[in-house]
Amino acid sequence: MITFISGGARSGKSTLAEHLAEGMYHQTKKEHPNSQLCYIATAKRSDFTGDERIDLHIQQRGKVWETIEEPYILPSVFTYVSEHSIILLDCLTVWTSNMMFSRNLGIRDMEDMLLNFLKKAADRQCSVFIVSNDVNEGMPSKCRNVQAYTFSLEAIHKLVIAASSSVIQTVAGIPIWWKRDRRLVLQ
């Protein structure tokens, strides 16, 4: 089961995603005790001044979460993830930027890798929550790189949305459901 969550900056998307993922984890754990609750962090440690902020986030999420730092090769996380796990990928904006500007990869490569990631998740009966950001509703940029980035990110959003059974836009922490899977319970 795939859930896509996006919204503006500080609109509560990560908090909602964590909440939904934790709820699903506690439900799944009853039947599948080996299930894990995994957080895939896409930010590179070098993006921050020191590692303090990353470590603070890890601490805030609490012990129930396992954090996997993977800025590029998303399908590789399945080396560490068992079947029936709950995976939260936060976030697509950073991952897309890493792929485009640090690895010089095009849309097709990114789409292939994401599809591979989602297929591996489905094969292992893992539920995936994917967080992204609405960056295409502000002033248009004259910078070609920004335009190319926005175009690629939108292509990726459309691909993930097509694969998702729940699609949520967040406004001030409130979910607006564009697609809703009845198995997903908001507690």
């Binding site: 509703e137 248009p140 459309k158």
Partner: peptide
Amino acid sequence: IGGAYSGK
């Protein structure tokens, strides 16, 4: 109405 490349 929608953002850039949003499918208008």
